[in-house]
Design a protein around this nucleic acid. Structure first.
Lengths: 219, 219
DNA sequence: ATTACGTTTTAGACTTGCCTAATTTTATCG
DNA sequence: CGATAAAATTAGGCAAGTCTAAAACGTAAT
């Protein structure tokens, strides 16, 4: 009763979607995997047959505990490999997502655990996303999107969206990395764009598109 | 015009078979991949269509230069990953083949080249097999199977069959590793079994099955 | 309560990669 | 040279994973 790479990708997507809304819809899965809804429906029947999701026709689905653990395992592998690529192989943070998409399907628990050890049992990946431990437990965090953060308060960047290399390269130009200090100088109510001060030095204008993909913690 | 993992496995198998006999036969490929000849015939048509092999019905096949390079690329990746697992992740030489079978299909030339660099541009993998450089060039060697080696001469183990964990564990028990010194003490003509002296210390009896999977160089 | 629209599922088709069974081709041996 | 055995190919079928087009369903608004 193994899970294929394709099934693993579905479980990972469903896990992530579950974090923002449940039950998860067919269309949301289709959009996040860039495939058609009809294809998703087929797979939902298979995942349901394997007891990885609880699925009622026309009414969305939930991960079962078994499916949730399977999803977490993939995320753990993905994030450990990403960190490995950055820390040990000198890749940039905008280069690692695509390679980790492949590496996450390598089947060897021992390898994953040794990777974890080699990296010193890290809590977060290069984009600031939390890495679950070998029991599937995530550390808790208190971040919010920069777009919702208060003006004038001292903020620390805790994570950024991982899957868009263009965004990451843009952040490099702004000098924004995980741990960077930010303060919101001015906010435009109309389009949610803002002017921010980075590390008490330079000031930049950023759009809502960018501000919604940066997550911060009030210091 | 990408090559799938399956196609890569065929090319790797064909490359290895080409080293001992050309043209390569349908049956030999089927045996080495543990699939049926009929399945191989189908794939041969596809590989031929992609100009990776030169194939005449009922008369065997040869790799084209393009196919040969593709095969070498997979072998290079497989062997570099194996060495990585042993050198950097503390796996034993009998544990790495299966994991490398998966890792060899990761698509990132940059990753492979950095692996090569991290390992110091190694010439051989943990089983003594040669690692081609990034241009696909193998170092030359002068080894022969222990079963054919001369009696009484000082021999050095240069490589062993990689794909049978049981054999590798057996060699561990005999104290045989890459670089070990061996001398053939007595040979039985009848079954090609022999008695050998390992590192000028212990003497062991080994069957032809084992002796044919150990490769040596006369010192 | 009915309609209209968006979401979801069904139906039918295609590709890859595998199988078994039947057939064809080649090579060998008397 | 012809029979026959071994090797290879063809034919037909199956599962996974994808698609498009059509039908079914659910919901929100009138």
């Amino acid at each position: 009763m193994k899970t294929s790479s394709t099934e693993e990708n579905y479980l990972k997507a469903i896990f992530k979607l579950s974090e923002t809304a449940t039950p998860v819809s067919t269309t949301d899965i289709a959009n996040s995997l860039n495939i058609r809804s009809a294809t998703v429906t087929d797979m939902l029947k298979r995942l349901s047959g394997k007891k990885l999701i609880r699925y009622e026709k026309y009414h969305g689905l939930y991960l079962t505990e078994k499916g949730r653990q399977a999803g977490i395992r993939i995320i753990r592998k993905h994030r450990l490999w990403e960190l490995f690529l950055v820390e040990k192989m000198r890749f940039r943070w905008d280069e690692v997502h695509e390679i980790a998409e492949q590496l996450e399907h390598i089947q060897s628990d021992e390898l994953v655990n040794r990777l974890d050890e080699l990296l010193g049992f890290p809590k977060t990946d290069p984009h600031g996303d939390p890495i679950p431990d070998r029991n599937g437990i995530f550390g808790t965090r208190h971040q919010s999107p920069l777009v919702n953060a208060p003006k004038g308060a001292p903020l620390t960047v805790t994570s950024v969206s991982e899957n868009d290399p263009g965004l990451l390269q843009h952040l490099d130009k702004l000098g924004i990395a995980i741990g960077t200090q930010i303060e919101i100088e001015t906010k435009e109510d109309y389009d949610h764009s803002m002017r921010i001060i980075v590390d008490d030095k330079q000031s930049f204008f950023i759009s809502e598109s960018v501000a919604s993909r940066i997550f911060v913690e009030v210091k």
